[in-house]
Nucleic acid binder design. Structure first.
Lengths: 403, 403
DNA sequence: GTAATAAGTCAAGACAATTGACTTAATAAG
DNA sequence: CTTATTAAGTCAATTGTCTTGACTTATTAC
């Protein structure tokens, strides 16, 4: 009678969607190219000078862009470049890791203004939530002390934690943070902060960070191979983070190394967890990061052995990523100590032959990314900023225009 | 002085982009849900009744949709459903394979109206081009004989051939159609037919076909694992075919099976090419398809051995695809004989544990797709239709609105 | 000093979605 | 059988946003 299966359709768009898109395109252009004149923007975006003028005026009113000194370049009226105003927007980024949680406040151009961290008590979410909310509140108030009106310009809170999310058979895998996985984190954070909250896995956050201020800046197709406690890939496809059906795309750590089905996942061989095991050290040791950095610098034998073994697997991972995603470049990043990452990169080369070997390449196939303990938190913060200001298909649709 | 590096920016949009998007959204909704009333469309797309009415009127004038018998469903004025008109648009699909080329004419809803094939002479593009252009011309004129005004409603020619495209080191790989790779195929086809021409690899074409009329219908995230002469994956991500930087995304056939770097690519073990080699048969034999189908049905020992071996690799490939892309489902399709594909599917199960194992799954992790020698040509034709009528980000941008 | 060039503004116009009142056509209820 | 209710769909005016073409401003080239 009433055939009640729901009708599936994509959302339409309207004038506001058009306008929202064009605003985002301007911001994106300024982010990629630096300050530009309205005439340049008009040419680059294919919009008319008039439209660009109107949008820039509006963005200036909103405090997102500002004019700079006029520049003369040949004949004609000098142009007035407009650039992004760093203080135009802020976001809080939160990294929840095994033994520690970090929070940062980041501005529109990706500068970290405030950073703070706390140890996470072993009790899981029940006790951890308090610590996290306090940390976020602290960062938020420090930000408010540095810049005025920061609360008004806060676009959201981005959280990052190790994935995968919501997987059925994960209970018996000691590498995962099971209790956190089951916890209604988004709701708790949202209720506890009153902010829009987004969640991504740590590799995705690293990719988001690289896209905003790192090696993937301005690229539309880039994959970040993130070596942390686990290992994952953050996917920038078509200029946007790709999340997959359940936000688990890129979980390369769970990829099996051999086709026979009896092998171990990549994560057990090329990750900090595997290094800690190899070295028989306690992952909870707060000085571990520095100690491993020292050891790596000194050319420690045990570390060397792990690096050589991991490099084999990473080389294969990069080959696989190139083969499946055909990106412009692969970026190796991680929360690993810097010295370790550079040893890894050295040990990985030369890369395996792949479809990425083309005549006329300009970008290197593999680039080092950030190797900074704070990069995941930065990427977590970059998430809300990207959602708010970067051009994306979803942003033109009516069902995303409530704000 | 004049800093002449080009300014990179995304294109803006305007009213026409809005309108184009909304038209596409309507068509997409009708394709996924079947005929719908204007009121239903308005609710589903979040547009107003009035807007929907205007767009539908325009689409009806353009011959893309038509009204059906009014239906009463409870109180209120009966609704008038509108459905896609199959004859609203056509496309030609062309498959270029090693020893044969196939062409089809397909309508708006993906029905194949005309099909024809020719053997490809071994001389490569120099002699093959003539054969192909004749084939296309034949299909085109047969289409014109069946439906009126077909030429006016022809949106383009889609070509599909084995990838990868434009790769540097490919010269020494006997599995590739090297001469065709180097040939300016798009230009030649475009000049020879006067049509808009698109090119994708055969796995991408298979995925496009599955999306239009097969197991991926209405899905936003699906991966087609295509077993043909080679093996590749066609990627539907965010509701659109993902091509990567150079159209080579998904070339899983080139993935190495072991991390040690000395192993063979997947293609050498799980593809029809590997089967032919295993059986020591001539790939150019025109009756091969039927013969292998017979052998598979009879439970031939040699085929069984290959199936068992290939299934191991395919099981791993599916695991890998699930791990990296997090799709709603994986579809196994191919130009392989149907009996062979069903034996493969039987031998592949059960699947390896992966992030795809979730509570609340509704779709199977692995589904059989089309196993039809014509499915690649169909997918090739579906390409231009999708580009012309499906909602996509690129379609709203000013730089895509010249047509 | 004048012409050429380019940036940017102004005001009117065009386009497409929105709004709110209205019409039409059916069923449910009394 | 009549009337109220509900839902589909239309009409006409309005709104929001980009476009158009003429104009102004500021600079360099000749």
């Amino acid at each position: 009678m009433n055939d009640s299966r729901p009708i599936r359709a994509k959302s339409g768009t309207n004038h506001e969607g058009t306008s929202a898109h064009n605003r985002r395109v301007m911001i994106d252009a300024l982010r990629i190219n630096g300050a530009l004149s309205r005439a340049d923007l008009a040419r680059a975006t294919r919009l008319t000078k008039q439209t660009v003028s109107n949008i820039i005026e509006e963005l200036e009113r909103d405090g997102l862009v500002s004019s700079q000194e006029a520049v003369r370049k040949g004949r004609g009226q000098p142009s007035t470049p407009y650039g992004l105003v760093p203080e135009g927007a802020f976001a809080i980024g939160l990294q929840i890791d095994r033994h520690v949680t970090r929070a940062v406040a980041v501005d529109l151009v990706g500068s970290v203004l405030v950073r703070d961290e706390s140890g996470l008590p072993p009790g899981g979410p029940s006790s951890g939530t308090r610590v996290i909310l306090d940390l976020v509140a602290g960062v938020r108030s420090k930000l408010a002390g540095i810049v005025q009106q920061s609360e008004k310009r806060l676009v959201g809170l981005g959280a990052a934690m190790p994935g995968p999310f919501g997987v059925a058979g994960s209970g018996d895998d000691p590498w995962m943070m099971e209790a956190w996985q089951k916890f209604p984190l988004l709701e708790t954070l949202s209720a506890g902060t009153g902010l829009d909250v987004g969640l991504q896995n740590d590799a995705a956050a690293a990719a988001t960070a690289e896209r905003m201020v790192g090696a993937a800046h301005g690229l539309d197709h880039a994959v970040c191979l993130f070596v942390g406690y686990g290992i994952g890939a953050g996917l920038i496809l078509n200029g946007d983070l790709y999340r997959g059906t359940n936000g688990n795309a890129g979980e390369i750590g769970m990829a099996l190394l051999f086709a026979d089905g009896k092998s171990t996942p990549l994560e057990h061989r090329a990750s900090l967890a595997s290094l800690y095991q190899h070295l028989s050290v306690d992952p909870a040791d707060p000085h571990l990061h520095a100690r491993i950095n020292d050891l790596a610098l000194k050319g420690d034998q045990s570390i060397h052995a792990w690096v050589e073994a991991a490099a084999v697997d990473l080389r294969w991972s990069i080959h696989l990523i190139e083969t499946l995603f055909d990106p412009q470049t692969v970026i190796l990043c991680g929360s690993a100590p810097e010295a370790l990452v550079s040893r890894l990169i050295a040990a990985i080369g030369p890369l395996l032959p792949s479809i990425a070997e083309r005549r006329g390449r300009t970008l290197p196939r593999l680039q080092p990314g950030m190797a900074d303990p704070w990069s995941v938190a930065l990427g977590a913060a970059a998430g809300p900023i990207s959602r708010a200001f970067d051009p994306r298909f979803a942003a033109i649709l009516k069902d995303s225009l409530q704000s």
